[in-house]
Amino acid sequence: MRRPLGYASFVLAVAATLASVGIRATTPLASLGLPAVAGVAPDSAAATLLLAAAVVLATNGANFLVSTVATRGASTRRRHELRNALRLAFGALALLGVLGVLTDQWVGVLVSLGVVGFAVTFALQQPLLSLVAWFYITVKRPYRIGDRVEIDGEKGDVIEVDFLVTTLWEINGSLVSTNQPSGRVVTVPNSKVLSSDIVNFGGAGFPYVWNELAVQVAYETDLAFARETMVGVADDYLGDEMAAAIEHYRRRLSETAVELEVAERPSVNVVQTESWVELRLRYLTRPRGATNVRNELYERILDEFNDNPDRVSFPLGRNR
């Protein structure tokens, strides 16, 4: 649909330009006795409006052509970012061109835009701040289309980044839990990026997150056996994917000033409480599949523990 509209814009721009020139040359409206528009003869006013329309149409067509060439072969994320940038640039050119045609004072238009822009800055602080934040998002890339993020308490998958707002496909929220989509769409002003904490789950070129699974066992449990069982189950289920993710994680860390030892296998941390011992399995996984991975690991670990009741005991009572 965009292709026919883009080509049609050029055709209509040429037609509007020719019509404007024709009206100025023949003045067909002069004989109709039409009143002047703001002190301007009707033929001149019609020619000016047609020329302004030609500027808008030509700019739209140029935006289409440049966008088509610039985004050819680019990823979905990159195409979205380029199209937004080009829309803003060609929109500014169209506005400047239309004002120049209507006033016929190009230098005056530039000066007026500077004065008006200074006044508008105070009247539209939040929208302008969101526009500045859009430039920041485009250049620094704290998140991109498809990333799972949390912005000012709103968590979801980024589905669109416009000049003023970021649109999220909500995760969790007040309707569901366990990192599941709620089906709702949340719109967050881009200005929040400059004033709030931004959490990107699996972003910055590393599509994994560390996750934990907690299992409560009694003090009578053979902790060494329980820990090795949990690590073995995680090793069998996660397999080579986690090993590859660990290597990727280490490479990313080596590019920073952070010095951190990273275990090659899943690990288990022991937390003591008054009534039981909590074993926390730590592993690396993709954020979107984290819930399914946790559920599968939990079921497999419980099956292993239940097959060894002489070595693993669970806390008694319902106060867990």
Rank of each mutant, 00 (worst) to 15 (best):
V98Q: 05
L102D: 03
T103K: 09
A94I: 10
L86H: 06
L88S: 12
A94H: 07
L93N: 02
R79N: 06
L99D: 00
L88Q: 12
H80G: 03
E81W: 05
H80T: 02
H80M: 03
W106Q: 01
R77T: 15
G108F: 02
L86A: 01
H80Q: 12
V101K: 00
G108R: 05
G100N: 01
L110Q: 00
V98R: 08
L82P: 03
L99V: 02
G108C: 04
A85S: 13
V111E: 07
A74E: 14
V98Y: 06
L88E: 11
R83A: 01
R77K: 14
G91A: 08
A74Y: 14
W106H: 09
S75Y: 10
R79S: 10
N84V: 14
T103V: 05
L95C: 06
W106S: 00
L88M: 10
W106E: 00
E81R: 14
A94K: 06
A92E: 11
G91W: 10
T76H: 12
T103C: 06
L86Q: 04
V107G: 13
L95F: 13
V98I: 13
V107A: 07
L110M: 11
A85Y: 09
L88T: 15
L86C: 04
R83H: 11
E81V: 14
L88I: 14
